[in-house]
Design a protein around this nucleic acid. Structure first.
Lengths: 191, 191
DNA sequence: TATCAAAGTGACAACTTTGTCACTATATGA
DNA sequence: TCATATAGTGACAAAGTTGTCACTTTGATA
C-alpha cells in the first residue's frame, strides 16, 4: 500500500558514517547525505528531525553492533586468544573510537530524542569499557601483561594503533600482524 | 605613527590552534576567533583574506617551529638518546599530527597565497618525514629496533601513542614514561 | 481501475556565515 | 595641537544552511 523506498536504513547509515569520518561533525549536512543517496534533502526530514538525531541514531546502531561482537570475546578463555579476537574486531571496525570522539562534539540538544540517544550512547560506552577492563584484568591475572601499566593506557594504545594510517599501502594482513606484534612487544629488539 | 594593536600574532595563532583542535576545519570560523580575542570579525580580515589563509599561515609557523626542534635531534648520537629527545618534543607538541590531518581537509583554493602555503606545507611534511626516517635507520643500524617492522608503522605508532587521551588523569610524567615504555617493549611481560 | 497510504520533491522563509567597506579611534611626531 | 598612518568597528549584501509544507508520485489492494 505504499511507494517503494529509494534507500535502505543501512545505506543511510553507511553514508552517515562515511560523511562523519570524512568531514567531521561540523562539516556534516543533510545536503551531503542527500547527494550521496540521490535524494532530495526534504526526504531525510521525513525520517529524522535534524542531523543530531540521525547521527545519534546511527551511532547507537553501530555501537550496539560493535558491543555484540565485543561480548563474544567471552567465547575465548585465554588472554592470547581474546587478544587476537579483540584486535580483529577493532581492526574491522576502525572507526569506532573516532565516532566516540565525534559523539562528544554533539552539543546539548533540546530535542528530546537526541538527549535520550546521547544518554544511551554514554551507557554503551561505559558497558564497552567494562568489557575491556575484564579483558585487561585477565591478562594481568594470567601474568601475560605487566601489572604496572594503567589499563586505560593499554586500551588507548590498542585503539590508537589500529588507526595508524597505512600510507605505504603495506598489504592489509602484514600490516595487521605487525600492529599486533608491536602492541605485544614494542619496537625494540628483544635482548 | 599608528594605533596600538589589540593582539599579537602569537595570540592569534594560539586561538587558531585551539579552535582547530576543538572544532575541526569545518567548525572553524572567524567569529570564534574574534570572540576569543575580543575583536570584531572585520579586524581579522585586515590581516588574512579568509580562514584558509589564516589556517595555512598558522600551520606553516607551527610546523617550522616543530621542524627546528626536530632537527636538533642530531645533537644526540645514540638511538636511545634520540628516542628520548624525539618523544619529548612530540609529547610537548601533541597537536602536530592532528594538524597534519586537518591540513589535508583544506579544499583546493583559488586564492593564490593559500595554494603556495599548502605547497610549502607539503614540503615541510616531507622534510619532517626524511628526518624521522634517518632516526629509524639509526635504530636499525644500531640493532636497537627490529628490522622487519616497516618504518612508516613505527613512526605512526609513536605519533599515535603520544595522543592517547589521559582520561584517568594519571600524572603527566608517569603517563609519559609509561608511553615510552610501551613503545619500546609493548604491553606483554618479558618472558 | 480507483483509492489511498507512504515516499519523495522543491520552493520558501528564517537564520547563519562570509566578505567588504566607509567610517571611527588613537599613537606618534612635525 | 594637528596631520597622518595604522588599527578597529559595525552595517550591509551575498551566499549557504536549516527546517517546513503543499504538492506530486507510486504501488498495493479493494
Amino acid at each position: 500500500m505504499a511507494r517503494e523506498r529509494k534507500f535502505t536504513l543501512e545505506e543511510l547509515y553507511q553514508a552517515t558514517k562515511d560523511t562523519l569520518v570524512h568531514v567531521g561533525y561540523n562539516g556534516f549536512t543533510f545536503s551531503i547525505i542527500a547527494e550521496k543517496l540521490e535524494l532530495s534533502r526534504g526526504t531525510i526530514y521525513k525520517y529524522f528531525v535534524n542531523k543530531d538525531e540521525l547521527i545519534t541514531e546511527y551511532m547507537l546502531y553501530d555501537m550496539n553492533r560493535f558491543l555484540e561482537d565485543l561480548k563474544l570475546i567471552h567465547q575465548y578463555k585465554s588472554f592470547d586468544e581474546q587478544f587476537d579476537y579483540l584486535l580483529g574486531i577493532i581492526f574491522r571496525d576502525r572507526t569506532i573510537q573516532q565516532l566516540i570522539r565525534i559523539a562528544s562534539q554533539i552539543p546539548e540538544s533540546k530535542e528530546n530524542q537526541v538527549k535520550v540517544n546521547l544518554e544511551k550512547l554514554r551507557r554503551l560506552h561505559l558497558d564497552m569499557y567494562a568489557q575491556l577492563e575484564d579483558f585487561i584484568q585477565l591478562g594481568k591475572v594470567e601474568g601475560k601483561i605487566r601489572e604496572n601499566l594503567h589499563s586505560g593506557l593499554i586500551l588507548g594504545f590498542i585503539f590508537q594503533s589500529i588507526v595508524i594510517p597505512n600510507h605505504f599501502q603495506v598489504p592489509e594482513s602484514d600490516w595487521f600482524s605487525s600492529i599486533k606484534d608491536i602492541i605485544r612487544f614494542g619496537i625494540y629488539r628483544q635482548s
